[in-house]
Amino acid sequence: MATLPYPTSTDHLLITIPFSHYNEKARWAFDYYSIPYAEQRVMPGLHRYSTRPYVTPTSRGKKNSLSTPYSTPMLVVKPHLKPPYTIHDSSDITRYAATSFSSHSALPARIDGIQRMPDLYLSCGLELEPRVLQLERRFSDGNCLGIHSRRWAYYQILCRDKDLAIWRVMAARSNVGWLQRLMWWFMYPKIAHILCTFMMINEASAKSSETAIIAEFEYVSTLITPESPFLAGKAFSAADITFAVLAAPALGIGEKEGYGSWSPKKEVFHKDAQEFMERLRQTPAGKHVLMMYREYRGRKAIGCRNARQWGGLW
């Protein structure tokens, strides 16, 4: 694909559940390439009101059984066109950003007067592109790290916190419209119950996910060496982004550490959960995530904006 000229925020609408780690991956990819976009933030359970207008007969969910054509992140390319062109999977959105707005090589390059960052799938070299893709799929598809870290974090928030104190304030912290905040205030207990049932969140599943998270951190720790400080080779790639964002819930990465929106930080969890997060942070894999956020998590491009429906109410 040819490198596209840089767009304005009207060319890309990114619909996100802001604290979701899969949504953070799509946001990171756009920020890494300094692509202006409009972000429409929605709450879980209420997101269909925003995604429904862009769902087409050929739309599909992400690559796991919990996703539907209405799932987020949803990227709408040139949302003013009919029918809309949408991309539903965080990895597909990352690939779109890389193929459309990168240097198309392992090195940055100046194209049409604009400095383009390396292609996140080619940055380790063409011969290692399959390795980047293999790691990306390992972390994000099927019964993967992304599923386990979300289940573990949701168990801490939805099951152990009987007052749902963190869950209750999420709408206010997520910068959504006033109507969403009001609906969330009345509906958050019901949505919490539905999520626990739908995602099979309970003490046993959380314990199983904790074991899976530890195993994945141990595996990733073996990939990091002085000769190869990144997961797929000697350069930052989509594999590093994918592991960093999908490990974030298990590490309690907050906004001050680079997360792209408000997210529960580790200090708000129970003491034993905080201790688990801290143990993970001390592993080579955990330190790698913190470094990725510190050194490679870009900031929004000039021209990015928040998008709301219904006169700003949603």
Rank of each mutant, 00 (worst) to 15 (best):
G61N: 13
H148T: 04
P83A: 09
V220S: 08
G260L: 10
S65E: 14
K78F: 01
F243C: 13
F230D: 06
A26E: 06
K234V: 08
I191W: 06
G61Y: 13
A238W: 12
G254N: 10
E216C: 12
R151N: 09
T10P: 05
G252L: 08
K190D: 05
R160T: 07
Q274N: 13
D92P: 00
L14G: 05
E136R: 08
S67K: 04
R52H: 06
K82M: 11
T68V: 07
A248Q: 02
L4R: 12
Y49D: 00
L290D: 03
S105T: 15
M74V: 02
K300T: 00
Q180L: 12
P130Y: 02
C159G: 15
N23F: 00
S103A: 06
F269H: 04
E295W: 03
L231R: 01
G61W: 14
H12L: 12
H80L: 07
N143F: 03
I191A: 13
E39K: 04
Q274W: 12
S149R: 01
G298V: 04
T99E: 11
E255Y: 05
K62M: 12
D11F: 10
H148Y: 11
R297N: 06
G303D: 00
Y33T: 03
L107Q: 12
R60A: 10
I194G: 07
A98H: 04
A238S: 15
I166Q: 15
E218Q: 14
G45F: 03
P249Q: 05
S67I: 05
M43H: 01
R52L: 09
S149Q: 01
S103K: 07
L13A: 05
D92E: 13
R181V: 11
K25L: 03
G260R: 03
R110T: 15
P44E: 03
I93M: 04
E227Y: 09
L231A: 08
F186H: 05
W184K: 00
F236W: 09
Y6T: 08
A238Q: 14
Y296D: 06
A235K: 03
P130V: 01
P44M: 00
I302N: 09
N64I: 06
L313M: 15
R281V: 04
P7V: 01
Y70P: 02
M74P: 00
T10D: 13
E129P: 06
G233H: 02
F139G: 07
M183Y: 13
E136Q: 08
T72L: 05
Y154V: 04
W262I: 12
P226R: 11
A109E: 01
R168T: 11
G312N: 14
H12F: 10
A2R: 12
Y96H: 02
L122I: 10
E210H: 14
A247T: 12
P264G: 10
P284L: 13
L145I: 08
V76N: 12
N202E: 14
E295P: 02
F139L: 12
L126E: 14
V289I: 07
A250I: 07
P36F: 03
V42L: 04
D119H: 08
T58P: 06
E129K: 13
E295T: 13
M200H: 11
M200D: 14
W167R: 02
S149M: 03
V132I: 14
E218H: 11
H193I: 06
